[in-house]
Amino acid sequence: MLRFDIAPVCSNAYRLQALMSMTIAAIYLFTPYKWVAIFLALGGFIRGFVSPHKCLSYKLFASITRTLKLSKMQNAGSKMFADKIACVAGTAMFVTWLLDSSIGMIPGWAILIFAFLDVTTGFCAACWAYLAYYKMKGA
């Protein structure tokens, strides 16, 4: 479902956001600093459930892309769906760390892999799934 109640977002700013998510996942997976997952959860919550335009990191990345004249606007719906997934994954990572369980490594690896794909190729798997779902639903 396209979101016309929220202003379009910059897809290149979201690629920088994916780089940040990839970095958080790498820190979670390869260092003892598992608590960083809270940043993934909170950022995903603000961008996915509130509005991307209220998130400080998105504002920063959007201003960088605007300054570099690399802004490429798109509808916010699919990116907000991706952020909801990041919120759930980050929450799972953080809670399982608090519970001293290693199961949080699974969403950590998923975020790392899919964020890497987004950063390097521009392919957002969650955005693709979002659009595919609404195409199937409409058919």
Rank of each mutant, 00 (worst) to 15 (best):
M1D: 14
L2Q: 13
R3L: 15
F4T: 14
I6S: 00
P8K: 12
P8R: 13
V9L: 11
C10R: 08
S11I: 12
S11W: 07
S11F: 07
Y14I: 05
R15Y: 09
L16G: 00
L19G: 09
M20F: 14
M20S: 13
S21F: 14
T23F: 03
T23L: 12
A25N: 04
A25G: 05
A25C: 04
A25L: 07
A26D: 12
I27H: 13
F30T: 13
T31G: 10
P32M: 15
K34D: 03
K34T: 10
K34Q: 08
K34G: 08
W35F: 14
A37I: 13
F39C: 13
A41K: 09
A41F: 11
G44E: 06
F45S: 01
I46M: 08
G48Q: 01
G48E: 01
V50S: 08
K54R: 10
C55Q: 11
C55K: 11
L56K: 10
S57N: 10
S57P: 03
Y58R: 02
L60R: 06
A62H: 12
S63H: 14
T65D: 08
T67C: 14
T67W: 15
L68K: 09
L68V: 11
K69V: 13
L70R: 08
S71G: 08
S71H: 06
S71Y: 06
K72D: 07
N75Y: 04
N75Q: 08
G77F: 11
G77V: 10
S78A: 09
K79E: 13
K79D: 12
D83W: 00
D83Q: 02
D83G: 01
K84R: 11
K84V: 03
K84Q: 06
A86Q: 02
A86R: 00
C87L: 09
V88H: 01
V88E: 02
A89R: 03
A89F: 05
V95I: 13
V95G: 11
T96G: 04
W97F: 14
W97M: 12
D100I: 15
S101D: 06
I103H: 10
P107M: 10
G108T: 12
W109H: 02
A110R: 07
I111F: 05
I111K: 06
F116I: 06
L117G: 01
V119N: 03
T121V: 07
T121W: 04
G122C: 00
F123A: 03
F123M: 02
F123W: 03
A125W: 00
A125D: 04
A126Q: 00
W128Y: 11
W128H: 09
W128P: 01
L131K: 02
A132H: 02
Y133K: 07
Y133G: 03
Y134Q: 04
Y134K: 02
M136V: 09
